[in-house]
Design a protein around this nucleic acid. Sequence first.
DNA 1: ATTTAATATAGGACTTGTCATATATGATTA
DNA 2: TAATCATATATGACAAGTCCTATATTAAAT
Lengths: 172, 172
Amino acid sequence: MSLRFAILGFLSVKPFSGYDLRKAMDASVQHFWPADQAQVYRTLTRLIADGLVAVQAVEGDSRQRKLHFATQAGLAELDAWLRAIAPVEETREPFLLKMFFGGRIGAADVRAQLQARRAEAHALRDTFQAIAASLPKGGDISAVLRRATLINGLRHVEAEIIWIDETLEALP
Amino acid sequence: MSLRFAILGFLSVKPFSGYDLRKAMDASVQHFWPADQAQVYRTLTRLIADGLVAVQAVEGDSRQRKLHFATQAGLAELDAWLRAIAPVEETREPFLLKMFFGGRIGAADVRAQLQARRAEAHALRDTFQAIAASLPKGGDISAVLRRATLINGLRHVEAEIIWIDETLEALP
DNA sequence: ATTTAATATAGGACTTGTCATATATGATTA
DNA sequence: TAATCATATATGACAAGTCCTATATTAAAT
């Protein structure tokens, strides 16, 4: 449901083609909003039908892409959504489900699961840290908030790593 | 997709009716696998069709419920899933999306968002802590792992609270 | 005694997202 | 020059889950 707003958010900065939109999302919000290609195009179609986005084929462009713009109505919807207090979200975590019933498969297999996850978490933490290090710390509110979304990911992988290690120790 | 395995997991412990299953899930795995009533029944139907679950109406029961059992095939599928290394999961977090584009609405509204989330996080942390305090610390591998899933939730809300506070401070 | 709440199951309509596939063009490379 | 890769858009089939509504029985409360 929020893909609408993710797209409107990007279009509030500058016009994008569907393709560029997808690339931009992959490069910035992928870790908290992975965008499926088909879904991006379908949502764009929907946004256009709702009058929140307008299209304009680029004249004289070598590529046959369609530039998408946020309309006034689109920006108004975006801002209303941004201001609405976010409801608590439910999450589904298959990994925790495995842990919950892990007693069935024995400590060795559970350890393997935890260690695999630890390796992934370490890699992700390193990635987040590298990106964070390359980003300037101050700046205007937008810069601070964009950095904050990255730090959020970092804090959560850190928490996950700590939890994995304490769980491995607690295991009999 | 994992609801299948959540259900098989519960049925590996003891037989359940659809209704009791839902209640049991709400009472134990809700924070990482919220179960929709309709979905539980539909998945049960599917599991029966696949031969992983068997039903048996309870004789002489005052209620008209159907008891569901995991079959041998069901338990085998469960164990295979438990042993398969969990792939990295993608997550979608509308709240971070709001933060990412928060620059549009100004610091005051962003603060309001963060403070609302902090209140929710504190409440959740208190709940997790209360439950964790009531749970014995040691026990067999199953007990340790079940407690661990709760601690996982706790560690992540704690991380979220820390992040909220540091973000509020970083805000101009 | 009647209403209301809890137990128990089920299905339709819908939304979001995934996966696979199709198509066409321009750019690069062998 | 032919093959292949990146750009660019689109659709069909499907899966998983949500929301709403329906139905029937039993227990509790007024």
